[in-house]
């Protein structure tokens, strides 16, 4: 059972990496395969951070144009394809938020606890080993520090927005996050 699921996850990752490589060589149908495999996940990220469905679709559009232009620079030995793509989506959504202060209010749901949507084992997004390691390290932090890191990263919040929400001084929030990030780096073993 476990072996089958693991094999499926590895297959999905290999398929995605191959499609990215072909997209990098200029194959539009390969980009479409990348899109089919990942657009729901990347849209979830864009929506979570922008808090607006229409804006999230505009951001997602930019994300795939960026993926198309950068696919040739993807290096499978340095990053998993899914992490690489998710990071592009996260950056684009954060850029969008910071570029328009008028819209830069915390989106609804930004402070929600992280949904525990346990992924299916053959989900292309599964990267159990890395994710479990990161989650274990986050769990090892003081709870406030870990929550501050999670909610800012996943909700697209600034220091100030989290401070306002928690009615906690800005300096305290900064210190939680900085100390948490330092410990996280040590725990992940590459400090």
């Amino acid at each position: 059972m476990g072996n089958v699921a693991e094999k499926n996850a590895v297959d999905a990752r290999t398929t995605l990496a191959a499609a990215l490589g072909q997209a990098g060589a200029g194959d539009v149908s390969a980009l479409r395969r990348v899109y089919d495999l990942t657009s729901a996940k990347l849209f979830g990220i864009c929506f979570r951070i922008s808090g607006d469905r229409e804006a999230a679709e505009d951001i997602l559009q930019d994300v795939y144009v960026k993926i198309w232009r950068r696919a040739a620079t993807f290096d499978a030995s340095r990053a998993s394809p899914v992490s690489w793509l998710a990071t592009i989506a996260h950056n684009a959504a954060i850029d969008w938020r910071r570029a328009q202060p008028r819209y830069d209010a915390a989106p609804q749901g930004a402070f929600d606890a992280v949904a525990d949507d346990a992924p299916r084992a053959d989900d292309v997004m599964v990267e159990d080993e890395q994710r479990l390691r990161l989650l274990a390290c986050l769990n090892g932090l003081e709870q406030q520090h870990a929550e501050a890191i999670r909610s800012t990263f996943l909700g697209g919040l600034t220091y100030q927005q989290l401070a306002d929400h928690l009615q906690t001084p800005l300096g305290t929030i900064k210190s939680w996050i900085r100390r948490g990030m330092l410990k996280l780096k040590v725990c992940l073993g590459d400090a």
Binding site: V28, L31, R32, Y35, S39, A40, K41, F43, G44, I45, F47, R48, A56, E57, L60, Q61, Y64, V65, W68, R78, A79, V82, S83, W84, A86, T87, A89, H90, N91, V114, A115, D116, D117, P119, M125, V126, E127, Q130, R131, R133, L134, L135, R150, F153, L154, L184, K185, L188, D190
Partner: peptide, 28 residues
């Protein structure tokens, strides 16, 4: 970014509308 990226896997997926791909295709 590499260290934090696995966290993005915890965000719930949702399908975008078809207009997104159409626009991507037109732009590339």
């Amino acid at each position: 970014r590499r260290r934090l990226s696995p966290l993005l896997g915890t965000v719930a997926a949702m399908p975008p509308s078809a207009r997104v791909w159409n626009a991507v295709e037109a732009r590339i």
